[in-house]
């Protein structure tokens, strides 16, 4: 099983004592303001020469899409990033149609948006393309969308699963973003799901138990771990 770690912003560090993982995720899946400039990718590559850089991308507005495509074009000369984790249907289409360039993986938001339509037709054929390295799942429900050969491409997200996110960020005061969301996850209590976490503009919940069950049901291709200053709930999925 491949091992991956999600970094928080460009200043993110792999915890002391840990060996650099095979894949390092940088960027943001919930906010386009967290997309790193090319210089940040270069810096991270220097800092973690043995890790493959995966650019984690959100749903993209037109300005963010244009800026990201420019970043990818600039990075192509240096082979950066090595993979793009895509959550926007348009970006997925654009990158898949272009050929060449970095490998792609389908982020959990895009996987959720495609849902059961991934089980057949052109959507399935696109996802089975060798260019698509994997498809993220973070719950038993998202896993249930994946059938047959797609189950060999599971990238398991842990220890949090996605509940929802907004583009009206609570951390953005007076129209300005101070990137306070990078400070870590806030613990919330909901009458609906019990304990949940506010991670920037996203609501997440502990999926340790579900992640363990996913590892029992499929051979996970990649384990993508997210860490933060806030203490994650006890229990991590058992590696195979």
């Amino acid at each position: 099983m491949e091992r991956a770690e999600v970094l928080k912003g460009c200043g993110g560090r792999v915890p002391a004592g840990a060996t650099a993982p095979e894949f390092l995720y940088v960027g943001g899946e919930f906010c386009e303001r967290l997309l790193p400039p090319p210089a940040c990718l270069r810096r991270l590559k220097e800092a973690f020469p043995r890790s493959k850089l995966v650019l984690l991308t959100p749903v993209l507005s037109q300005p963010a899409l244009e800026s990201l495509l420019a970043t990818l074009k600039a990075g192509a000369r240096e082979g950066l990033p090595q993979e793009v984790c895509v959550n926007d249907p348009g970006l997925f289409r654009a990158l898949l149609a272009r050929g060449g360039g970095p490998r792609l993986s389908v982020g959990r938001l895009l996987a959720g948006a495609l849902g059961v339509s991934m089980q057949h037709g052109q959507v399935r054929r696109d996802l089975l393309s060798p260019r698509v390295a994997g498809i993220e799942a973070d719950s038993l429900e998202t896993l249930s969308f994946l059938t047959g050969a797609l189950r060999r491409k599971v990238h398991l997200r842990a220890p949090f699963s996605y509940l929802g996110h907004t583009r009206n960020c609570r951390f953005r005061a007076a129209g300005r973003c101070a990137r306070q969301c990078l400070a870590g996850h806030l613990r919330l209590r909901s009458g609906i799901v019990g304990e949940m976490f506010l991670a920037g503009n996203a609501y997440l919940r502990d999926n340790a138990e579900e992640a363990a069950r996913i590892t029992e049901q499929v051979r996970v291709k990649r384990l993508v771990l997210e860490r933060g200053p806030a203490k994650a709930p006890a229990g991590r999925p058992r590696p195979q």
Partner: peptide, 9 residues
Amino acid sequence: AICFNSETL
């Protein structure tokens, strides 16, 4: 269908 940009369109 989360159509936020020209590529999705």
